[in-house]
Design a protein around this nucleic acid. Structure first.
Lengths: 336, 336
DNA sequence: GAAAGCTGTCGAAGCGCTTCGATAGCCTAT
DNA sequence: ATAGGCTATCGAAGCGCTTCGACAGCTTTC
C-alpha cells in the first residue's frame, strides 16, 4: 500500500502539502500541485479510507437501508438503489447496503460507528420504528417515502395522493363512473406503508368530487390471487368499466383475465396502472400509466443528503408531481 | 461519540483490556469482562469503524459490484444482493454497493483505499475486463458467474450447462423432438455473458445426444419482440412442440401468444423456463422450470469470501446443481 | 524452594490521514 | 523604509483503535 508519506517523499514535499493538494483546502502553487499529482499517479496512490475517516470524522459513505421483504416492488427498489449508488459516486460518496433484517438497530450501529455520514431509508412506513432513533441521532438522513409525521425529517417521494387523483380524473373524463382499484397486497396496507394509503386517499378524494363510484380491493400478485379478486369485484360491481392497478404483479394477470372473459381493453374496460415505465410499455397492452420515477427518487434523495452534509438546505418534503402517460389501455367508457 | 478510552475509564481498566474484551484475542477474567461489557452497554459504545480499520487494516466490509445495466435479470440481481448483504452481516461484515458504472477502476479504488476487505463481482462476462485487475490485486474476490478462464479465481454459479441439458432431457423424455429455445436478448450474447452461452452449450449437447432438433433464438423481452421471434420460429419449424425460455420477460408474452394462437399448454406445446421460483409459480400457467437459486448464490459467495479472509479454502469453482420442478406447463408431446 | 509456565492486565507505539498554528518569503500601502 | 497582509509550505498533534512486549502474581514441577 502506498501512503501519503511516500507520495510526499517522492514529490519532495511534506505530507500536509500532499493532503492539501488532495483536499484543496489551502492554496498550493501550480508547480507543487503538478509535482504531487504526478507522484500520485506514478505511485498509484489511493488514500486510505480508514485513516481518512478517522482523521476527518467523515467516512464519505452513505448508508442505504433497503427493505428485506422481497415481496413487493422489487424492480423499483433495485432501480432506486442503483440510482442512489451512481449519484452518490458523482458526489464522491460510496454506498453501504443495509437490509432491513437487522432492524432499527442498524441505525444505531451505523450512526455510532461512524460507518456512514448519513443514511437513506427506503420503504418507510407511516409510523416507522426507525424514525425515533433517527431523530435522536445527529446523522443527516433522507427518507424515500413519507411517514405520518415528517417534522424534522427530509423526505422524497412520488406524490401518490396526486397520483391517485390523476388516475381517477383520467377515467372520469372518459366517462367511467364505476372504477375498481386493484391495490397492493393486504400486508402492505396492514403495515401502513404510506404510499399505498396516500394513493387511496387521492383516489377516493377525487372520486367523491367527480362522482365516481370507487371500489378498492387489495390483492396479492399472481394469477390465482387476481382471479379471485377480479371475480369478486365484477360480482359486486358488474358495471365496472375502469381499473386502476397499483400492483405490478397484478397487471399481466388482469389483462389476461379480462381478455379471457371477452372484455376488450380499451373498448370495454380501461386500465390505468401505477408502475415503472418499463412494465407499462412491455405489457401485452401498452398501458396508460403513471410512472414511478425510481431513478429520480434515488437521485434526489442523494442530492438532498449531500446538501445536508454541506450545511445547505434543511428539512424538506419533496413530492414529485405524477405524470400520466396515455397509452393503449384506456379509452372512452362504452355506451350502456 | 463514546470512545474506547471512555469505556475503559468507566470500567476502571486500561484501553487495551477493553479492546481485548471486544476482540477476544487474549483471555480476560470473567469479572473484568463483565464490568467492561456493562460499561459498553451503559455508555452505548460502538467502536469507530475508521479507527478500527486503520489500526487493524481490515475494514469488515465486502464490496459488491452489481451491473449497471438494468436491462436484464433485475429481480435475480436484487435477490442476490440482499442475500449477500444479510449473509455478510451474520459474519460481521457490511456490504458496499458498487455499480458497474465506474468500470474496472472501481476495483482499483476499493483495493487501494482499503475500503473493503474483498469483493464479490456479479454478472461476470466470459472475458471480463475486471479480471486482470482482480488478479493483480491481493484482495480476495469471488465471482458470481463463470468467466472463460477461472484459474486463480473463485466462482459461484448455477451449473447452466447442466441446466440446459436438463431442460432438453425433460422435453425429450416426453417425446418432444422439435424444441425451440427463446434466449436472452441479443446483447447478452454479444457481450459473452457466460451463463447464456453455457446454457446453450448444455442444450445443444444433450439435444444432439438425444436426437432432438433445436432452434435457438435470442429475444428481447416484451410482447412485441416476442411476437416477432415466435412467428419466425413457427415459420421455420412449424412442428415445434417444446419451448425452453431463458428470458423472464418473455415468459408471459409467450404464454399469452400461444394461447391466442389456440395452442394449448401443455396439451399442444410444452414450456420449460429457466427463471426464479416466484416467476414460475406466479405465471398464468404454473411453469415447469429450473430455478435460478439467487439467494443460495449470494450466500455461498459470501461464505467463500469469508473463508478466504480466514485463510481457509482456496480457489474453487462452485457450480450449483440445477433442479427441475415439473409443474403444469409441460407434458407429453401431442401425437402427430 | 527455585525454575518454569500460566493468566490477566497495562503501557506505549503506531496505523495513515487531517488540520491547526507557525513561519518564511514576497508584495503592497503608507 | 516599514508595517501589514498574502501565499505557499512545513511540523506536530491527534483522531480511536489494535497489538506487541512487559510484567505482576499465581500455580505447577522436580
Amino acid at each position: 500500500m502506498v501512503t501519503l508519506a511516500e507520495v510526499a517523499q517522492h514529490a519532495g514535499v511534506s505530507a500536509s502539502t500532499v493532503s492539501y493538494v488532495l483536499s484543496g483546502k489551502r492554496s498550493i502553487s501550480v508547480n507543487t500541485r503538478q509535482r504531487v499529482e504526478r507522484s500520485i499517479r506514478e505511485l498509484g496512490y489511493h488514500p486510505n479510507a480508514g485513516a481518512r475517516a478517522l482523521a476527518s470524522s467523515r467516512s464519505n459513505v452513505i448508508a442505504l437501508m433497503v427493505p428485506l421483504r422481497t415481496d413487493m416492488y422489487v424492480p423499483v427498489m433495485m432501480e432506486i438503489a442503483i440510482a442512489v449508488a451512481t449519484t452518490a459516486r458523482t458526489h464522491g460518496y460510496d454506498v453501504l447496503l443495509l437490509t432491513g433484517e437487522e432492524g432499527p438497530d442498524a441505525v444505531r450501529r451505523v450512526a455510532g460507528s461512524g460507518l456512514a455520514d448519513g443514511m437513506i431509508l427506503m420503504d418507510v412506513e407511516l409510523d416507522d420504528e426507525r424514525l425515533p432513533l433517527l431523530r435522536e441521532t445527529d446523522r443527516p438522513a433522507v427518507l424515500i417515502g413519507l411517514p405520518a409525521d415528517t417534522t424534522g425529517l427530509t423526505c422524497v417521494d412520488l406524490d401518490f395522493k396526486a397520483t391517485g387523483a390523476l388516475c381517477v380524473e383520467h377515467l372520469a373524463k372518459r366517462g367511467h363512473h364505476d372504477v375498481a382499484v386493484i391495490g397492493e397486497a393486504p400486508a402492505v396496507y396492514e403495515r401502513h406503508t404510506g404510499f399505498a394509503e396516500r394513493t387511496l386517499d387521492g383516489l377516493r378524494g377525487r372520486a367523491r368530487e367527480l362522482g365516481v363510484r370507487l371500489l378498492h380491493r387489495p390483492c396479492e400478485g399472481g394469477y390465482d390471487a387476481l382471479a379471485v379478486t377480479l371475480a369478486r369485484i365484477l360480482d359486486e360491481r358488474p358495471g365496472t368499466t375502469g381499473f386502476v392497478v397499483q400492483n405490478e404483479s397484478a397487471v399481466e394477470p388482469l389483462l389476461a383475465l379480462l381478455r379471457q372473459q371477452g372484455r376488450a381493453v380499451p373498448e370495454d374496460v380501461s386500465v390505468v396502472a401505477i408502475c415503472p415505465e418499463q412494465v407499462a410499455v412491455q405489457a401485452s397492452v401498452r398501458l396508460t400509466s403513471v410512472a414511478v420515477p425510481a431513478q429520480e427518487m434515488g437521485r434526489i434523495a442523494v442530492e438532498q443528503l449531500v446538501a445536508k452534509f454541506d450545511g445547505r438546505g434543511g428539512d424538506e418534503v419533496v413530492l414529485i408531481a405524477p405524470e400520466l402517460t396515455v397509452r393503449a389501455s384506456s379509452g372512452p367508457a362504452p355506451v350502456q
